[in-house]
Simulated assay, not measured.
Amino acid sequence: MPTPVVDYDLCVGCGSCAEVCPEVFEMRDDKAWVVGPDKCSTCDCQQAADLCPSQAIRLE
C-alpha cells in the first residue's frame, strides 16, 4: 500500500486532505501532516492527493 507524503514547502494549508482522510492527515500550524500513514485503507488517499491544489501530496 502506498504511503502519503506531504511536501511542506508546497502545502498551502487548504485542509482538503484532512477533510477527505481525517485518520491520515491532520492540520497543524497551517500545514497538512501525515499522522496515520498506514490508514489509507480507511479512506481514499489518492483522492486527497488529487484534491490538493498545490500538488503537495504524493503517494510513495
Rank of each mutant, 00 (worst) to 15 (best):
E60G: 15
C40N: 07
S16P: 11
V34C: 05
C43K: 02
Q46E: 10
Q46I: 15
K39V: 05
V6N: 02
L59Q: 06
D50E: 15
T3A: 10
P37C: 00
A18N: 03
D29C: 07
A32S: 12
K31W: 05
S16W: 13
V24I: 12
S41C: 11
A48C: 12
A56C: 07
R28G: 08
E60C: 05
V35H: 00
E19H: 11
V6I: 12
S16V: 15
A56K: 00
V24P: 05
V20F: 04
T42C: 11
D30R: 10
A18R: 02
P53G: 08
F25R: 00
G13D: 01
E60A: 10
A48R: 02
E60P: 15
P22V: 00
A49C: 12
L51N: 12
D38W: 10
V6L: 06
E26W: 03
G36M: 01
Q55P: 06
A49W: 03
V5K: 01
C52I: 06
A56M: 02
L10G: 05
R58A: 07
V35L: 01
V12P: 03
C52Y: 03
T3W: 07
G15T: 04
P2A: 13
T42Y: 09
P4S: 00
V24A: 05
W33T: 13
E26I: 07
E19Y: 07
Q55N: 13
K31M: 09
D30S: 15
V34F: 01
S54Q: 09
C43E: 01
D7Q: 04
G13Y: 02
E23L: 13
L59A: 05
Q55K: 09
A56T: 02
P22R: 00
A56N: 03
C43V: 04
L51T: 12
C40M: 11
P53N: 03
L10Q: 08
D29Q: 10
C40L: 08
S41G: 14
P2T: 05
C21M: 05
D9T: 14
A48T: 13
G15C: 07
A18L: 05
Q46A: 15
V24E: 01
A18P: 06
